[in-house]
Design a protein around this nucleic acid. Structure first.
Lengths: 96, 96
DNA sequence: CTTGTATTTAGATAATTTTCTAAATATCTT
DNA sequence: AAGATATTTAGAAAATTATCTAAATACAAG
C-alpha cells in the first residue's frame, strides 16, 4: 500500500503527470501531448498512479479522463511528517 | 534534487532505516543488525539516503554514526502538499 | 607498525523498471 | 456492420537498481 505510493512518486514522468492533473482533469491523449514517450508507455505510468490511488479515471465517450485523487497524497504527506516526528511515536530513545 | 529525494524514499529498506533513525542516532553496524542483507548493500542504501540529504553522518572513533536530517523531509512533505493543492499555484484551469 | 574491527568501494550478477512496437479492446460515426 | 479514433495489453529489449563477494580504507589498541 505504502510501497505502491512511494514507488509511484519515484518516477519524474509520473510526478509531472500529477503536476499536470493538478490544473484539472485531462484525457490520456491530452496528457500524452506533454511527453515524447509512446502512449503505451504512458498508459503504463497511468496504471502505476492508479494502483497507488493517486489518480481516478472516468470514461467519457471514447476518451478516458484522469483526475487527481488527493486523498492518498494527503496521507503521503502525513506519513512523511510522521517519519520525521519522533515525538508522535512511541520511540525507544537511544539518543547518542 | 527532488529526484534523489523521491528515489531514496522509494525503497522499503531505506524507509525502514529512516524509521530506525527516528528513534535516535545509530552506527552503521547497529542499523545493520536490523536487516539480513550484507553491510555492503546497506552502505549503498546509506549512500542514497545521504545523497538525498535525508541523513547526516559523523565519525565517532571507528564507527560512523547516522542520524536523521529532518530538514529535507519537511521539504518533501511540503512538496506533496503543494502537489495536491491547485489553489497554491498559478494553474491554468481547464476543469472538465 | 601490526592486528582487529567498522565501514565503504569496486566490479559482477540478478531483479526490477522503463520503454518500445504490435496487437487487442472499446467507443463513436457513418 | 465497417472504418476511424482513443486507450490499454502483451511481449521483448534496454536501462536502472539492489544485491553479493572480495578488496580497500580508516581508525583503535596493543
Amino acid at each position: 500500500m505504502n510501497q505502491a505510493l512511494f514507488q509511484a512518486l519515484a518516477d519524474p514522468t509520473r510526478r509531472e503527470i500529477l503536476r499536470i492533473l493538478r490544473a484539472g482533469s485531462r484525457s490520456a491523449g491530452e496528457i500524452a501531448e506533454n511527453f515524447s514517450i509512446s502512449k503505451a508507455s504512458l498508459s503504463h505510468h497511468f496504471g502505476l498512479l492508479k494502483r497507488a490511488q493517486l489518480v481516478r479515471t472516468e470514461r467519457r465517450g471514447q476518451h478516458i479522463v484522469y483526475s487527481l485523487d488527493t486523498t492518498v497524497m494527503q496521507d503521503a504527506a502525513a506519513i512523511l511528517f510522521e517519519l520525521l516526528d519522533p515525538a508522535g511515536v512511541a520511540g525507544q530513545e537511544k539518543k547518542s
